[in-house]
Structure formats: structure tokens, C-alpha cells
């Protein structure tokens, strides 16, 4: 279970407060969506969950399975099951996709006390999981994300997620830059990972992603706080009314 308690966050080295007291609980097995206007702090929340250093938590706590993760390094969090699918996946020239996936997979397996995968075992798993996301293994021989289209990058993120088998998946604007076909493939990949052991937090500006990844709860984030919480129908209401109610113009 993810428990975010009274979370206050500012940008390190600056005074700007971005998150001003977030309270949120995501039980295992549930998918929660966070919607909100631009600049509301959605991506900040995603980064803070993953442990990015550019932010400073000034108050509150984040508990994952009852344990505070705030003092943990990003790689320790990953080993504990936290995974952030980036809004803008990074290109890593010179590192082949397979090398990257294998290094990451075995790093978290080792930390979790699982046996590291041998090359044949790894290849078998990666082929199977990449296939489901329409990713050609040949593409993974190329440097990570270099020269990939927006859709390819997002599929590559979901493949990483599938390989690392996280228990808390945070998806930051996973729909941005995707056409409808790519959106379907990515959503199917995410839905395949839904399980009673996994909690998911889906961050999005638009409702359309939630047609494919249907959430159990929807939270509206604006001005650094959760302004409203409801069921999946809340997303449809927002689609109609925009974020005006929360003092912002719809984009």
C-alpha cells in the first residue's frame, strides 16, 4: 500500500513550494489516476516518489508497504518495487538496450534476493515480454531510446516496467506523444501488469488514457493539493468541464 501523508515539496535551492500537503492512499491491486492542469505538481509528485534529487521534501512522508522511502536512494526504491515510467524517456547513446535491461533487471533481482538471470534466461524473458509490446529484439540491440519515435520510447518504458516487475508503478503522462494505435499497445501492456499485488498511479492531463487503463479512483491535483477525489466518472466530468473549477484553464 502506498501512503502519502501531508507531503510538502519544494524545488531544492529555490523557495517555490510545489506540493502543499498531499494526502493519498493507493492500496495494492488498485489503479489510481491523478489528473490536473499543467503546473499543478503532477510530475513533481512522480519524481519525488522515484527519488529525484532536485526536490526537497519539507514536510510529510511517503510510506510504501508501511516503510518510509524518503531516505532511500532511487535504486533502493526500485529494488523495493517502485517504478516510474518517465514522461520523457531518456536516450542513452552507447548503451545497448539489452545491456541496459539486463543490468537493471539483475541489479533489482540481486537486491530482492532473487537469482540473477543468465543470458539465455534473460533473452527468453525479454523476447516474450518485448513481443507483447510489439518491440523487435533487434531494436533492443541499438542504444537505449536513441532515434526512437515517441511511441517506441513509451513502449520501451513499459518493457522496462515488465522486466523489473515492480509493485508500485507510477506512470507519468504515459499517453503524451502517442497516437491512438500506440496508446492501445501501451495501455494493453500496462493492463497486463495489473494484479492484486500491484498498486498503480497513473498521472495524466487528459481523460483519454483512462478509457484504456480504467482507474479505480481519480484524484484531481491542483495548486499542490488533492482538490477532489472520485470514481472513474470523475475523469469524464473533467473532460467536459475542464479544470476551470480548480482555478485553471483547460489546456
Amino acid at each position: 500500500m502506498l501512503e502519502i501523508k501531508n507531503l510538502h515539496v519544494k524545488i531544492a535551492d529555490e523557495d517555490t513550494q510545489i506540493l502543499k500537503g498531499i494526502d493519498l492512499v493507493v492500496p495494492k491491486g488498485e489503479v489510481h489516476a491523478i489528473m490536473g492542469p499543467n503546473g499543478s505538481g503532477k510530475s513533481t509528485l512522480a519524481y519525488v516518489l522515484a527519488g529525484r534529487e532536485d526536490y526537497e521534501v519539507t514536510d510529510g512522508d511517503i510510506l510504501w508497504n508501511g516503510e518510509s522511502i524518503l531516505e532511500m536512494e532511487p535504486d533502493e526504491r526500485a529494488a523495493k518495487g517502485v517504478f516510474l515510467a518517465f514522461q520523457y524517456p531518456m536516450e542513452i547513446p552507447g548503451v545497448a538496450g539489452l545491456t541496459f535491461l539486463r543490468t537493471a533487471t539483475n541489479a533489482v533481482r540481486k537486491k530482492r534476493g532473487q537469482a540473477e538471470l543468465t543470458t539465455p534466461e534473460f533473452m527468453k524473458v525479454v523476447k516474450e515480454r518485448a513481443g507483447k509490446l510489439n518491440i523487435d529484439v533487434e531494436m533492443l540491440k541499438r542504444p537505449v531510446n536513441v532515434g526512437f519515435s515517441g511511441g517506441e520510447k513509451k513502449r520501451s518504458e513499459i518493457l522496462q516496467m515488465a522486466m523489473l516487475e515492480p509493485t508500485l508503478c507510477v506512470l507519468d503522462e504515459t499517453d503524451s506523444g502517442l497516437d491512438i494505435d500506440a496508446l492501445k499497445v501501451v495501455s494493453e501492456g500496462v493492463n497486463a501488469l495489473r494484479s492484486p499485488d500491484r498498486a498503480m498511479l497513473v498521472i495524466t492531463h487528459y481523460q483519454r488514457l483512462l478509457d484504456h487503463i480504467v482507474p479505480d479512483r481519480v484524484h484531481v491535483l491542483a495548486h499542490g493539493k488533492i482538490q477532489k477525489t472520485g470514481g472513474k466518472e470523475l475523469a469524464l466530468e473533467l473532460e467536459k468541464s475542464g479544470y476551470a473549477e480548480f482555478g485553471e484553464k483547460a489546456a
Binding site: 532511487p74 537493471a104 537486491k111
Partner: peptide
């Protein structure tokens, strides 16, 4: 950060 978020120390 990207690499570390993927569990690489």
C-alpha cells in the same frame, strides 16, 4: 537518475 530509477546502483 534515469539509470538509478531502474535499480542500477
Amino acid at each position: 537518475f534515469y539509470l538509478r530509477a531502474r535499480g542500477i546502483p
